[in-house]
Simulated assay, not measured.
Amino acid sequence: MRIVLFAFCVVLAGCSSEDHENLRQWMVDNSKDLRGNVPKLPEVLPYQPVPYEVESLLDPFKPNKIEPESKYKQASGKGGAFQPDFEARELRNSLLEKYPLESLKMIGYLNVNNRPMAAIQVEEKVKQVKVGDYIGLDFGMVTKISDKEVELRELIQDSAGDWSERKSSLYLQSTEGSKK
Rank of each mutant, 00 (worst) to 15 (best):
V38G: 08
E154N: 12
E69N: 12
K65A: 03
P46W: 01
L137Q: 08
L172N: 05
K167T: 11
M141S: 11
P116D: 02
S159K: 07
N114M: 07
L155S: 10
S17M: 05
I66M: 14
S159H: 06
D59S: 14
E90P: 00
V10W: 04
V54G: 09
E87K: 15
G79I: 02
E90K: 13
D29N: 12
V10G: 08
V10M: 12
E90S: 10
V54S: 10
Q121E: 11
Y47C: 08
D138Q: 10
P63N: 14
I135R: 02
K148E: 11
R35D: 05
N37P: 00
M141N: 05
P63S: 15
V44M: 09
T143P: 00
K144I: 02
D19T: 06
D158H: 04
G140Y: 01
N93P: 06
M117A: 14
N111T: 08
Q157R: 15
V10F: 11
F61G: 06
P49A: 11
E154D: 06
E124V: 04
L137T: 11
P42W: 04
G108R: 08
V112S: 14
L91T: 08
V10C: 14
I156M: 05
E97I: 01
Y171V: 11
R2K: 08
T175E: 14
G77V: 04
Y72T: 15
G177C: 08
F86Y: 13
D162C: 00
